[in-house]
Simulated assay, not measured.
Amino acid sequence: MNGRDLPVRVDGRLDEPLSRWLWLVKWLLLIPHYIVLFFLGIAFTVLTVVAFFAILITGRYPRSIFDFNVGVLRWAWRVAFYGYSALGTDRYPPFTLQDVPGYPARLAIDYPERLSRGLVLVKWWLLAIPHYLVVSLFLGAGPGGDDSGWAANTPGLVGVLVFFAAVALLFTARFPQGIFGFVMGMNRWVLRVAGYAFLMTDRYPPFRLDMGGGEPTPEPGPSAMSGQGR
């Protein structure tokens, strides 16, 4: 199974050249987004509870709620990518729930036509526990109100690596490609878990670190390879 087969797809393109110093003040520039995301997060939480009961009764995630909640995650991912979860671009994130094709950070989640009524009772807490342990290592966090749906308590691996990349950027004007790929893999893992834990899919997230800016593309199978040789 490749990343394009999964219902949660996360892309982030390293948007070089990057400013040597802008990362020092991005926390200040992002304050308007943090304020908006605070209120969006409240709405997201309330609507996820509504969706929980809707799935439990009907087996369907209300489409309007789904689109809104995906929009919130998409907005949060753009802010996180611009900010201290990646520092992957200096392009200021747009204030919109909609997908912005030209922006270097994008997130898409396939709408599920049907969801299991039984799984909705256990997947967001019991089944996701192994992933929560991994995510806590990445973010130094537990479930809560961070940009990606988590509340940071101590520095995680993402934050540490982004800090090293920021120092390298300050002195060399280049973001280390190896660090960027690794950080993207961890962010992608976190957002896949978020999609599952927030009831948007029944597909269990893979225990796989898909590194790099884009989702992995399918490798050509035997039939495709034989077709090319004709």
Rank of each mutant, 00 (worst) to 15 (best):
P218C: 10
F163T: 12
G185W: 10
P206F: 13
D202K: 07
F198Y: 13
L199C: 08
R174K: 10
V183N: 03
V193P: 00
A194R: 11
L170Y: 05
G214R: 14
G181P: 06
G181K: 06
P176A: 09
F198D: 07
L161P: 08
F171Y: 08
F182D: 02
T154L: 13
T217N: 11
A152H: 11
F171V: 14
A168K: 12
G145W: 07
F164P: 07
M186P: 05
S148Q: 15
P218A: 12
L169K: 03
N187E: 11
W150I: 11
P206M: 15
T154Y: 06
T172D: 09
D202L: 02
R174V: 15
V160R: 05
G214C: 11
G178T: 15
P218K: 04
M211A: 01
T217V: 15
F180L: 04
I179E: 00
F207Y: 04
Y196R: 00
A224H: 10
F175C: 07
M225W: 08
A173M: 14
V193I: 01
G145S: 02
N153V: 15
G149C: 06
A194H: 03
D147L: 14
V162L: 11
G145D: 08
D210W: 11
D147G: 03
G149F: 05
S226Y: 07
E215R: 01
L191A: 10
G212H: 11
W189M: 14
G159E: 08
G181N: 13
I179K: 04
